[in-house]
Design a protein around this nucleic acid. Structure first.
Lengths: 165, 165
DNA sequence: CTGTTATTGGAAACCATTTTCATTATAAAA
DNA sequence: TTTTATAATGAAAATGGTTTCCAATAACAG
């Protein structure tokens, strides 16, 4: 568990300036060059990046930023709710920006268990989200939970993989 | 990837054997004592067992069954669809029987990110499952996927954890 | 019973992630 | 600007769940 100095990691309700960097500062975090670079990579390459992917993209411009910092920053971002930590069962986590400043489209994932190809789908999202909200409300009440997040993923074989045995 | 057993023959229920064991043999796998013990533990303790949990429960009666065998067996069972491999973000996988012979009740999970408590809920399941089926159909058609499984999980803080800072 | 080969245990390897710790850099105070 | 407190950092080492290796063993068919 990351433990930094006096202040415990703030929660997702932190308010700050408009976008990522501002949000970051607004939550009491120092904005270092390494972190700026990481935030930059995340906002530029919307995808499902592993910690190492990010490291590789940050490295050329900032050879002195280590993998450790990538992990630490992602942990912070994830706790702030700015980044989703995804698990596609590959034995490594992947990360993606929760939302752009203008509210990027919400999507869920369709994962091929054969080749690990991942499809972001937005179809059916509206119905799903609506049902999820209802379910969330119900669960919150019944189990006295404060629900902050959900996962929906479908697994199967893509056209290429379902052919072979 | 584990590769064993030549034939992928469907269930030919083995006489006098419990459902799970029969299914196992029916698929061309040898039924060893270690595997019997593991199947036994899985059917007796419905829960979210980690590989080590299972090891601990198997060990007293079968001190010669190693952790490696637990992992290998779980992998086979998971590939057969008899067991679900679950991930609650603890850094270790957990496993539970997919279904009893008479079709145990389907459930989804509600996970406390504070204390890792996990609640199996069946409320709302019907609506969820119905929507999932539809979505599944749609996704299968649109992306030419052969969907075999899905995940739905809600994350949040339980009554105990949401109080503390 | 015998032969074939799936299965096994134990140790070592693997590898993403975390921890340690001495050093550095950031932001605020003076 | 300079000082000051301490958050943040990198490099290396540690961690820990899972997998691989390989020689020995045991299921099962014939």
């Amino acid at each position: 568990m990351m433990k930094q100095g006096v202040n415990v990691m703030p929660d997702r309700n932190c308010r700050g300036r408009p976008w990522l960097h501002g949000k970051f500062k607004g939550c009491g975090y120092r904005l270092t060059m390494g972190r700026e670079a990481i935030l930059g990579v995340l906002s530029k390459h919307a995808g499902h990046l592993s910690a190492e992917d990010i490291y590789m993209k940050v490295h050329p411009g900032h050879p002195n930023v280590g993998l450790t910092t990538i992990y630490r920053t992602l942990d912070v971002l994830s706790n702030l709710g700015l980044v989703y930590k995804l698990d596609f069962g590959e034995g490594r986590a992947r990360y993606e920006l929760a939302q752009g400043p203008k509210g990027a489209h919400h999507h869920h994932h369709l994962v091929c268990t054969g080749c690990n190809k991942i499809i972001d789908y937005t179809d059916f999202i509206d119905e799903e989200v609506e049902l999820l909200k209802e379910t969330e409300r119900g669960l919150s009440r019944k189990y006295d939970f404060n629900i902050t997040n959900h996962i929906i993923q479908f697994y199967g074989l893509c056209e290429k993989c379902k052919g072979k045995k």
